[in-house]
């Protein structure tokens, strides 16, 4: 059974829900993902989202689980990791998606090809709440 969201989970969930809108305001970032069509699972360990990307745009973001819905790769991190990652200057080791996996605060799973071909794109998309910090509690 999926545990109920904590206050930190709720803050991260709210921030994630805002990412598609933030991405729409970043045309250069969308352009970098122009060759990317992908189904992925992103978010916190217990409350991730199914995300559909088409030509670099997030066209769907739905809370998991969704019955029998597939995804190619998943990047999930602790709520604490996301909240630190979105700070203007995260502390050492919490400042990068792969630093977080090394720190075992995040898990990267599945078919990594779309993630690796668009690594900087995903780093930047998932950092959007940092630049638009209003969704993240201080």
């Amino acid at each position: 059974m999926t545990p109920s969201p904590t206050a930190s989970d709720a803050a991260v969930i709210e921030a994630f829900a805002g990412i598609p809108g933030l991405l729409e305001r970043a045309p250069a970032l969308i352009a970098r993902g122009r060759a990317l069509d992908c189904e992925c699972l992103l978010g916190t360990l217990d409350h991730p989202f199914h995300i559909s990307i088409r030509s670099g745009r997030i066209v769907d973001l739905t809370p998991a689980p969704v019955l029998m819905r597939s995804w190619r790769f998943s990047y999930r991190a602790t709520a604490a990791a996301w909240l630190e990652y979105w700070k203007p200057a995260p502390k050492p080791g919490w400042h990068d998606l792969l630093a977080l996996t090394k720190l075992e605060q995040a898990a990267l799973e599945g078919d990594l090809h779309p993630f690796m071909t668009h690594l900087q794109y995903f780093k930047d998309v998932l950092a959007l709440p940092r630049r638009h910090g209003s969704a993240v509690p201080a």
């Binding site: 200057a89 995260p90 400042h95 998606l97 792969l98 690796m116 071909t117 690594l119 900087q120 780093k123």
Partner: peptide
């Protein structure tokens, strides 16, 4: 793409 992946991997090693 070699150039893209090499840069993207090491980008996280730079302090913010």
């Amino acid at each position: 793409h070699g150039g893209e992946i090499c840069a993207a991997l090491v980008s996280g090693l730079i302090a913010p």
